[in-house]
Simulated assay, not measured.
Amino acid sequence: MKGTLHTRRMKALERGEGEVMGVRWARRFVTRDPVKVLAVSVAGLAVLAIPAMSLKMALNDDSGKPPGTTQRIAYDTLGKGFGPGFNGPLTVVVDARDSDHPKAAAQDAYTMLSKLDDVAAVRPPSFNQAGDVALPAAS
Rank of each mutant, 00 (worst) to 15 (best):
S63F: 01
M112Y: 10
Q107R: 09
D132H: 04
L59I: 12
G68P: 00
A46Q: 04
D76P: 01
G64Y: 02
P67E: 06
S99T: 06
Q71W: 11
V47M: 14
R15V: 03
L55N: 12
G68N: 05
A43G: 09
A46C: 09
R15H: 06
N128C: 07
E19V: 08
V23P: 02
K80W: 09
L90W: 09
S99I: 05
G81R: 13
K103G: 07
V40P: 01
D33Q: 08
T77E: 10
G83C: 00
G81S: 12
A26Q: 06
A137V: 15
K103N: 14
Y75I: 00
E14V: 07
L5R: 12
R32F: 09
E14F: 05
N128W: 04
D132W: 01
T111L: 11
A120E: 03
N60L: 13
P102A: 00
T4C: 10
A74G: 13
K65M: 10
A109N: 00
M57K: 08
L38M: 09
V20F: 08
Y110E: 03
Y110G: 00
D33F: 05
K80R: 12
G131W: 01
H101S: 13
R32K: 14
V20S: 10
T69Y: 03
K80N: 10
V37R: 00
A106L: 02
M21E: 15
S139K: 02
D117T: 09
L135T: 05
V94G: 00
L38V: 08
K11E: 14
L116E: 12
